[in-house]
Nucleic acid binder design. Structure first.
Lengths: 124, 124
DNA sequence: ATATTATTGCAATATAGTTGCATTAAAAGA
DNA sequence: TCTTTTAATGCAACTATATTGCAATAATAT
């Protein structure tokens, strides 16, 4: 199942590259309205996630956000950093700080996410 | 709008009290099957949340979990602690550790949540 | 230029949760 | 105890977010 390059994919990746923050499907749909179907956006995003080009983060309000992978190496593909969502402008950002928690005896960690909501520097 | 005590509410609160971990609507529905409607469960849970009797946490898979409030005081009702979800038994627990992150200059924190997924002491 | 099959669009479906409305039943008052 | 008031409930319908099936389209290899 070799992946193909299509106008729709180029459009979406261009969008994500030009965005300084993570985007939800909804935000992306807004931007590419008329150029492609809703479902196509979902499928493209999922495909990029599979390939490790972008990562998918479920926000504290239950929606997925997507962002380019920055410092990921193919072998060690983790995104255990904190995310910030601005309650005013809805901007979602990856924070540099890693999630690091002491688990009770006998517990094994597989994955970790952290969300901070609040107001960004432009919105307070 | 004074709240009333009903058999359904008693049933739900009893369940949450007897559970050592947080429960999703689905888990609760499973337990009270036949005794009340799906919608009633949702409404009861929301009502309890409003009253500060329980707290609602959105898990990293996008579902709400509910748990009794333990150390909450009416004035300072926060739940900025980490939560753990076991990938095998689906148990959700509140971890003692607080979420504490340094935000970039000019950002204001309103709320914070953290999720760790993995395997609990019974499941690995 | 042709064949193969990944990708797309559209309709339908899945999942989690909410809303409207008529009916039922707590609890306060007579 | 009986009435009255209105919160709570059950049912159906709806919303929002995301996925699946399938036929049509189009990107790549030959």
């Amino acid at each position: 199942m070799k992946k193909r390059s299509t106008p729709a994919k180029k459009e979406v990746i261009k969008l994500l590259k030009s965005s300084e923050s993570a985007m939800s499907q909804e935000m992306i749909e807004e931007k590419v309205k008329g150029k492609m179907d809703r479902v196509t956006i979902y499928r493209i995003l999922n495909s990029f996630c599979e390939d490790g080009i972008i990562h998918r983060i479920l926000s504290d309000e239950g929606k997925y956000y997507f962002a380019l992978c920055m410092d990921c190496e193919p072998e060690e593909h983790t995104h255990d950093h904190f995310h910030f969502r601005c309650l005013t402008c809805q901007k979602v950002e990856c924070l540099p700080e890693q999630v690091n928690v002491e688990l009770p005896e006998g517990y094994k960690k597989k994955n970790a996410t952290g969300w901070i909501t609040g107001y960004c520097n432009n919105c307070n």
